[in-house]
Nucleic acid binder design. Structure first.
Length: 210
DNA sequence: GACCAGGCACATC
DNA sequence: GATGTGCATGGT
């Protein structure tokens, strides 16, 4: 394993301990959360998910049958509610047509093939696809995100404008990772980002570290 | 009121 | 391939 990457992981784990992601009751909830959390604070996502849970709607067929207007109204707290309602519907159509709404059936497909399938769904990009693969389906794949980019670029491990694929490759080629390591490493990086206010951009005026 | 949050698609050059 | 823009709520 790359020395620096291993050191970062060890220190994060020593400082924060296991994060045990994803915060959800079942794989389908992970998927819904992965779509809702796009560019959005997780607390807002929880509110939206609770709206669906309270109405016992957090199931593939039930969600798919909802009108756009009703679905959008339940996920308002997560922001971008119109576009996210559309993205959820796009995924559900794919999920039901191909896998009868079963995450177990979906998880039988090989990771590279399934990743391609997910990326072809409108509204699912690389981070969302990889979050689904890792956190809903237990596939060993590293999820990169904005925290990962900021932390790694500030440690000079990547360029600030590195592509998603370049960042993922850095981990996949150097970690020879299993599911557990992928899961914890990404979660720990997010934890660090939140704890140390790395969530704020370098020029941010409200960052308490300045 | 400014700024930000576990992205993505689409238009344009 | 790079760059810009719309999408939107709720917390600090």
């Amino acid at each position: 394993m790359n020395k620096k990457l291993r050191l970062i992981y060890q220190r994060l784990y020593a400082r924060f301990g296991p994060q045990a992601w994803w915060p959800a009751d079942n794989p389908f909830e992970v998927i819904v959360g992965a779509i809702l959390t796009q560019n959005t604070n997780w607390l807002n996502v929880e509110k939206a998910i609770n709206n669906l849970k309270e109405r016992k709607l957090l199931e593939p067929y039930k969600l798919y049958k909802l009108s756009h207007k009703r679905l959008a109204s339940f996920i308002v707290p997560a922001g971008y509610y119109n576009i996210k309602a559309k993205r959820l519907k796009s995924f559900l159509k794919f999920f039901i047509n191909n896998y009868q709404g079963s995450t177990r059936k979906m998880s039988l497909v090989g990771t590279p093939r399934l990743r391609q399938q997910l990326l072809s769904v409108n509204g699912i990009g690389p981070e969302t696809a990889d979050s689904i693969l890792l956190y809903a389906l237990d596939k060993p794949i590293f999820v990169s995100d904005s925290y990962t980019r900021r932390i790694l670029s500030r440690h000079r491990l990547i360029r600030e404008n590195a592509s998603y694929q370049q960042i993922q490759d850095l981990f996949m080629q150097n970690l020879k990772p299993g599911v557990e390591l992928c899961n914890e490493y990404h979660a720990l990086l997010v934890r660090l980002g939140k704890e140390l206010c790395l969530k704020t951009k370098p020029k941010c005026k409200i960052c308490p570290l300045k």
